[in-house]
Design a protein around this nucleic acid. Structure first.
Ligand SMILES: NC(=O)c1ccc[n+]([C@@H]2O[C@H](COP(=O)([O-])OP(=O)(O)OC[C@H]3O[C@@H](n4cnc5c(N)ncnc54)[C@H](O)[C@@H]3O)[C@@H](O)[C@H]2O)c1
Ligand SMILES: NC(=O)c1ccc[n+]([C@@H]2O[C@H](COP(=O)([O-])OP(=O)(O)OC[C@H]3O[C@@H](n4cnc5c(N)ncnc54)[C@H](O)[C@@H]3O)[C@@H](O)[C@H]2O)c1
Lengths: 229, 229
DNA sequence: GCGACTTTGTTCAGGCGTTCACAAGCGGTT
DNA sequence: AACCGCTTGTGAACGCCTGAACAAAGTCGC
């Protein structure tokens, strides 16, 4: 009676589970059969105790005194994060960034497959990118209905991102990854994650200034471990 | 005697300040002179009270009963986040993703300027991308010394990311933005921020499954406001 | 078969971040 | 000049997450 699943998993933990899963995939390729929490944590760049806490949300999945079975834990994590089934995605805005994403092989290996590339630019529509032909954005609704895409990725200019988002939501897409520098408004029940590269650079600039300007009162204290977050 | 700065600013707040700054830039272009915390928060996709708390780290910068001066607040934020000075950046790995970043105009407008593009591939070296010529990666050390670059952006394959990172650190770069799916190890005093797109998709997949699988016990409760994080 | 060592799983405390609610302050109006 | 409404700034409570210490448990060696 494996009835220990119903525990809720914090979103921060989910993000780390995805990292562990990738590390485990690498270890499995390398032929390793077992790992300790310490080694896995080091490879993932986190605290060993935190890693064990994260894994404990899935119930016991290691063997005391030995560690974790690489393949066993990988399968468990795969399952917890949504199974192995392929997740069809649509990508809207096939410019420089969109093309890079469409071409990227690293998504397919995790089960994320682009089933539709959409753009308005007549010069772009019709081109093949990453094995797929770019289609006019007018076909968005039909394409989502046809392919049952569940994830929408927005790489259009910021001005049109909200309207694209609205169209995605209207045809049932409830998971959206947004690269445009705007805050999207969506109804409850729809999840949006935003990737904002300018903000990342700006935070680095701030930390840089803080380091040079006020060295005595650096906020907390960085772990001497030297492992980045 | 504007001596109220020494307060420390949480990193989460810094990231939001960068968002506010972008919204303010847009409002200034639109000719607005004042904004209320409510309007600004709505545009940034955050809670109004939280926004005011964020701004309070900079000391009082609004007028009660009126709101915030758009240009005044923008200047204050610009200053807090590292000033207006141009921040020279080097980009290593001019593949699909690297090219997209090098070509992007949105960074320069915030003061981030790429002063060096580096790659190993002989087929890529010499090409012009975004107004800059790609240089062989052997010149990394010389280029950083010459341009005084303070930020390094890594878009190489994961296998070589750590070695590239080490070289950047060895010549004094203390701010690194990493797109490769590995946890970089750096000495104390160096800041690394990681952008992991596979993880973002994986989190969306998890939320999707959670929604369909266990609707009754959704973790906290989503804000009815419908504003995404 | 037993003991000791290794590593997990969990509990506890501390810190951070977020949210709500209210008092203080300013402008406009009478 | 005083009042009223609007908006900021802040204090406090709450919840989440992180980091560390401890006990349970299984394996390996003898
Ligand atoms: N390129 C980067 O490195 C980078 C970095 C940070 C943020 N971004 C953001 O990502 C987004 C895309 O950036 P980019 O550099 O690829 O820009 P881009 O101009 O190269 O590409 C945008 C694409 O969207 C298409 N498009 C425009 N309107 C559309 C619509 N209504 N429906 C469908 N497609 C439409 C355009 O035809 C174009 O192909 C922008 O919002 C940008 O701010 C990009
Ligand atoms: N393209 C995407 O959408 C995407 C998405 C998520 C993550 N990533 C990650 O970003 C990184 C780059 O992705 P990409 O799609 O641009 O790959 P890519 O293969 O197109 O580009 C990588 C570039 O790095 C260069 N390179 C290799 N070794 C180098 C070295 N030692 N020094 C300098 N340059 C070197 C290569 O010549 C190539 O030009 C990868 O780590 C990838 O996992 C990419």
């Amino acid at each position: 009676m494996p009835q220990s699943r119903p525990r809720i998993i914090p979103e921060a933990t989910v993000a780390r589970l995805a990292v562990y899963l990738r590390v485990l995939a690498g270890l499995a390729d390398g032929g390793r059969s077992h790992v300790s929490s310490g080694e896995l944590a080091s490879a993932a760049g986190v605290n060993p105790a935190g890693l064990r806490k994260d894994l404990s949300y899935l119930g016991p999945c290691g063997v005391r005194g030995v560690g974790y079975s690489v393949s066993g834990l990988r399968d468990r994590l795969t399952d917890a994060l949504g199974g192995e089934r392929s997740r069809p995605c649509v990508l809207i805005g096939i410019g420089r960034l969109g093309s890079a994403l469409a071409d990227y092989a690293g998504f397919a290996s995790r089960g994320f497959e682009f089933v539709g590339l959409l753009d308005t630019d007549p010069a772009t529509v019709g081109h093949r990118v990453g094995g797929l032909q770019v289609r006019p954005v007018q076909e968005l609704e039909a394409l989502v209905a046809e392919t049952h895409a569940t994830i929408g990725v927005i790489t259009t200019p910021a001005e049109v991102a909200q309207s694209v988002c609205d169209r995605l939501v209207s045809v049932g897409v409830r998971s959206i990854l947004n690269f445009a520098p705007v805050a999207l408004t969506v109804p409850a029940g729809v999840d949006v994650r935003k990737v904002d590269l300018s903000v990342e650079l700006q935070v680095l600039a701030f930390l840089d200034q803080q380091r040079d300007g006020t060295p005595p009162l650096l906020a907390p204290l960085r772990a001497a471990q030297g492992v980045a977050r």
